[in-house]
Design a protein around this nucleic acid. Structure first.
Length: 823
RNA sequence: GCCGGGGUGGCGGAACUGGUAGACGCGCCGGAUUCAAAAUCCGGUUCCUUCACGGGAGUGUCGGUUCGAUUCCGACCCUCGGUACCA
């Protein structure tokens, strides 16, 4: 047993319970908009209620809490809310497995996880809590969707899904394992369904440009978003049919300078040309069928062996009018550009490999700028250079050729300059039950009609049987049968639901006014503005963060918020790994912290997590650290403070009467405080805050001075240590703060560093010979190069390396280093 | 495949602007305390070499820049995250 019952020893159970109940009674973390303090909105990505917390949650929420508590100590009006990203696939899986309706399962999980979060002592304003499956929440999401619908940001088109022919259901990519349905084990087919899309590409330019303003975001995340948006400038080129009757093909290229080297075109297997060709040719039909058996994830498609099939169709080259064969290739994506590419095997490695495989001709049209000669039979030359074998365009460089070819094609109506994005419009239809219903009514006469605002929300029935075969609301005519708001005739509700990224794209704004019945957001959203600090896993670097940035811009354009970006500063956390893989819902409930909380307490769990690694780094979780954190809190922090208090009252610190020994100890205190201020406020490295405080205690342990001023120095050190640790281990620190006679921790203010205390009496200067360490000298700060050089040469171990050598240079880094360079 | 990270003792990590590599903690080893144990405290702990002082090597691999490189540059290997229906 960890606790012993001797009086005065640390009992984390009663301490944590006491402190938490005080927070609850006092409403310590409830905030409003009327404060004279500056506002600070601190948010950690809300969890999917998967059942129990795992260590990834503990890390995210402890980091968020540390930031919130530090900012509170610095005098900010801190809002730190929490809620639930409650719609999603796992609830459906659990419903099938346990025969529980998704709503009930979700509710149970929320109840349990909320208790866990509370027992960890996070400083949440729980009055702002909501779950995204609450109709009061998703009502406004439906309302906002209809605003987008009326703005023309919403449209319908067909798109491909993974179809399980046995379960008669659409599968998510992660539910397709080696080409088979996860439950039925049936071979998955791809199907085309009509789906709703939101025009995020209308905002592509702004989403890209505004990244430059996000100085509080990590460069790596911004870089990933830039690449994801993937802006490029190129040419849309028309290849006309050879015969009048055929169909032409549009391609998009960023290398129009290689147009004269085109030897074939490649189209995606879903391209209309490919489909048409399949009707007449069984080989082509078989090729497309085989392609459609691979799941639609890009990672899987891109890893396919490059394969193609000849359509037998020819189009004409827009300049030379020569016939160009059209192939179908499994590496061409229908979603990007026009679903067709012009292939220049001499100057594109992928085209080159494809041409080799199918014996298609190569034509070199770009000269290597340095080598001149290039053997295109060995590999493609993908660099830029001057045009050759290109008729009128010969000797032009890339830019000149780009312009000349663009002009030539434009005059013939065969080409147009185009800015293209890799970013695709956001498909938001899901053929699932456990999500927010799409508020559209389908009428035979009027088409897709928005549900009138007064009829919102379109509620999802929660008392359902869920067997996994199709969505329950697709089998409930009493739910889907309705009247057309337009013509009053019989009509059907849309039975698809929203992508769950919809909910997480605006929840941060709703926390400002979660109880608002009359609208989506009110002026409180304008008071809290953007999230000042957003904390969450790096796995959300692209999708969630991009969708939320997009939503925010649309909300701004609708006058609902005042700022351009939702998240000013972003802390993108590394993964907590278990056996080398990320901890998540899909890997079961690995890493439930409950037994650790029971055995060692919340402070120990929080401290162990913060001490383990810096936030942005992934690391393998080891429970061992929790025990040692508990030991440190108990036998160092608690015990030292307790013994200090038991030794009686402490005199006032008089800075001017300290001896050198006491000044040295005091310097360590202020160095620790300075480092912690920087680590919390700027570097966001909390592991080094902990190690700094541990070092302070190691120094205190060596400091033996029972004099009045000696004890005053200790007193200051302990108060500093308790303050510095309080964002990480708030329970024990709240109690010790009180005991140290400092009153309520809720009123505490961050300390100021005493610059005078940092001054050093002596510095350690290292002496090197040719960059190798040969000795060290203690000297007063500011010691001159000459003095050092003289003293260094007297050191035997330095002298023996300099003897009989010629010194060519002496490098001096003040107060740090002296390096003798010998030949 | 593509995009973005990461790689430092037995382990987690530190070294913040190119200047003492391994802070702090875990583990392990030795000692104190104890009837004994737990708990606690003290000391040691990169590797090789040396009685010792010291010396040599060393931050994924190979190469480069520099008086000096974990840090900057180039190539490669391994690994993690994302890849648009996991969230």
């Amino acid at each position: 047993m960890i606790m012993d019952e001797k009086s005065g020893s640390y009992d984390f159970k009663s301490t944590e319970a006491d402190v938490q109940s005080e927070w609850n009674q006092n409403g310590t973390f409830e905030v409003s908009e009327g404060s004279p303090k500056p506002k600070f909105y601190c948010l950690a990505m809300f969890p999917y209620p998967s059942g129990r917390l795992h260590m990834g949650h503990v890390r995210t929420y402890t980091l968020g809490d540390v930031i919130a508590r530090f900012k509170r100590l610095q005098g900010f009006n801190v809002m730190h809310p929490m809620g639930w990203d409650a719609f999603g696939l796992p609830a459906e899986n659990a419903a099938i497995k346990n025969k529980v309706p998704p709503a009930r399962w979700t509710k149970q999980n929320i109840d349990y996880m909320k208790k866990q979060l509370q027992s960890l002592g996070f400083s949440y304003d729980w009055t702002r809590e909501f779950a995204t499956c609450d109709p009061e929440y998703y009502r406004w999401e439906q309302w906002f969707f209809l605003r987008m619908f009326r703005k023309g940001l919403v449209y319908k088109k067909s798109a491909w899904v993974n179809w399980d022919p046995v379960d008669q259901t659409v599968l998510a990519n992660e539910q397709v394992i080696e080409g088979r349905g996860w439950r039925s084990n049936a071979l998955v087919e791809r199907r085309e369904l009509a789906q709703w899309f939101i025009k995020i590409t209308d905002y592509a330019e702004e989403l890209l440009a505004k990244l430059n303003d996000l100085s509080g975001w990590p460069e790596k995340i911004k870089l990933m978003q830039r690449n994801w948006i993937g802006r490029s400038e190129g040419l849309q080129i028309r290849f006309d049919p050879l015969k009048e009757s055929g169909t032409g093909i549009d391609v998009y290229t960023t290398r129009p300078d290689t147009l004269m080297g085109v030897t074939y075109l490649a189209v995606a297997p879903q391209h209309p040309i490919a489909r048409e060709a399949a009707l007449k040719n069984t080989d082509i039909a078989a090729f497309i069928t085989a392609y459609n058996q691979v799941k639609m994830a890009e990672a899987d498609l891109a890893k396919l062996e490059k394969k193609g099939v000849d359509t037998g169709i020819f189009v004409q080259h827009p300049i030379t009018k020569e016939p160009i064969p059209v192939w179908i290739a499994n590496f061409v994506l229908m979603e990007y550009g026009s679903g067709a590419v012009m292939s220049v095997p001499a100057h594109d490695q992928r085209d080159w490999e494809f041409a080799r495989q199918y014996n298609l001709p190569l034509k070199q049209v770009i000269e290597h700028p340095k080598l001149g000669e290039w053997d295109i039979n060995k590999s493609a030359f993908v660099g830029k250079g001057r045009c050759i074998n290109s008729g009128d365009f010969n000797s032009l460089n890339f830019d000149e050729a780009f312009d000349a070819i663009a002009e030539a094609l434009k005059s013939k109506g065969l080409g147009e300059r185009q800015v293209n994005y890799r970013l695709r419009d956001w498909g938001i239809s899901r053929q699932r039950y456990w999500g927010c219903p799409i508020p559209i009514i389908h009428c035979e006469k009027c088409g897709a009609v928005p549900v009138p605002e007064d009829d919102l929300p379109v509620s999802l029935p929660t008392d359902v049987e869920f067997d996994g075969v199709t969505s329950p609301i697709k089998k409930m005519p009493q739910w889907s049968r309705t009247i057309c708001p337009n013509c009053g005739g019989e009509a059907e509700r849309e039975t698809d639901t929203f992508d769950t990224f919809m909910e997480s794209s605006w929840y941060y704004a709703r926390f400002t006014c979660n109880n608002l019945d009359e609208g989506m957001l009110d002026d409180r959203a304008k008071y809290w503005k953007s999230v000042d600090h957003y904390v969450g896993g790096e796995e959300h670097a692209i999708l969630h963060l991009l969708y939320a940035r997009f939503f925010h811009k649309v909300m701004r354009d609708e006058g609902l918020v005042d700022t351009d970006e939702p998240f000013d500063d972003l802390l993108a956390l590394g993964m907590v790994l278990k056996d080398g893989a990320k901890m998540s819902k899909s890997s079961g409930n690995a890493g439930d912290p409950q037994h650790l909380l029971d055995q060692y307490g919340a402070d120990a769990v929080r401290m162990a997590m913060m001490f383990a690694a810096p936030p942005e780094q992934s690391f393998e979780w080891s429970e061992h650290n929790v025990e040692s954190a508990n030991r440190w809190l108990r036998s160092k922090l608690w015990k030292t403070v307790t013994q200090h208090l038991e030794a009686g009252p402490v005199a006032m610190l008089d800075k001017n009467s300290l001896n050198e020994y006491q000044k040295d100890m005091r310097r360590v205190t202020h160095e620790t405080l300075m480092k912690a201020t920087d680590d919390y406020g700027k570097r966001l490295n909390f592991n080094t805050v902990v190690s700094g405080v541990m070092t302070l205690f190691n120094e205190l342990q060596k400091f033996k001075d029972e004099s009045d001023q000696g004890r005053a120095v200790i007193d200051e050190a302990l108060k500093t240590a308790v303050l510095v640790m309080s964002p990480i281990t708030p329970h024990i620190c709240t109690k010790l703060w009180m005991r140290l006679g400092l009153g309520s921790m809720d009123e505490a203010k961050w300390f100021t560093v005493d610059e005078g205390a940092l001054r050093k009496r002596v510095v350690d200067v290292i002496i090197q010979v040719n960059g190798k360490l040969r000795g060290r000298i203690q000297a007063p700060p500011g010691v001159s190069k000459d003095d050092l050089s003289l003293r260094a040469r007297e050191l035997e171990n330095v002298e023996k390396f300099l003897r009989e050598e010629k010194i060519t240079r002496i490098i001096h880094v003040p107060d740090k280093l002296l390096n003798f360079v010998i030949s």
